[in-house]
Nucleic acid binder design. Structure first.
Lengths: 125, 125
DNA sequence: CTAATTGCAAACAGTTTGCAGGCGT
DNA sequence: ACGCCTGCAAACTGTTTGCAATTAG
């Protein structure tokens, strides 16, 4: 069921993504959006995220062993870097997959996910 | 705290890994081990998995958007294939990461995870 | 006005923990 | 027989859902 009304809660959440162009966790989103709408509830965050995914404004970013994060959907194919220090996730442009995969017989690949883990520039790489 | 006693529950769980050489979910493990120990509890599965990780017999396999799986730790660096049909996970030997990453300044990479997604040979690749 | 949307609390799934009884050593 | 280990149930986290009250259009 797509959205029909534009509320201050939804506007605040969209604004959070515009101001923070990297994959954000629901907790980060709630915390940032509460600057605009102090008594915002987590359920509303999740519902709004799902609305925005349905409207193809957002896409899910799933990293191994991490809770789902969300980022704006208007991006080209890319991969992610997860900082072990500050726990933030950054986009890495371009594709990091080898050209020649050389898989065993019979495997058909539809998609691939690559996550690099380490230290980001802010944390003194 | 490492294990000190060898119980029939633990033996059954180790046997499951020996018989199924691919990353297994806790639910799969419980279900398979109950063939040997019918009233095995899920808490015991998790505790045994954690014992085995501590003893470096097992390692965790985290895939994007999936619950953790576990496989024997005696493997070389490799990546994983996740079948969208049967939901099983397979090991892929060798490294699939590009040689020349060409990252922005300041990012230091410690580890990387690659997951391919698609159809496996059993599901008519 | 009307009903879509919110906020709270309850429901859920996956995982961990506390505790009394069972069982390896 | 000592005390580690199990099984159950309760606790906990991340996410979803039910429902009465709010509010956008």
């Amino acid at each position: 069921m797509p959205r029909q009304r534009r509320t201050k809660q939804q506007i605040a959440i969209e604004e959070v993504f515009r101001r923070n162009p990297r994959p954000l966790s629901p907790h980060e989103i709630l915390s940032l959006a509460r600057d605009d709408v102090p008594n915002l509830g987590m359920a509303t965050v999740y519902r709004t995220l799902n609305y925005m995914i349905e409207d193809q404004i957002l896409q899910v970013v799933d990293l191994p062993g991490q809770c789902s994060r969300y980022e704006l959907a208007d991006k080209k194919h890319h991969h992610h870097f997860h900082c072990l220090d500050c726990d933030k996730v950054f986009d890495l442009e371009g594709c990091l997959l080898k050209e020649d995969l050389n898989l065993p017989e019979g495997f058909v690949v539809k998609e691939h996910d690559i996550t690099l883990t380490g230290r980001c520039p802010d944390c003194g790489g």
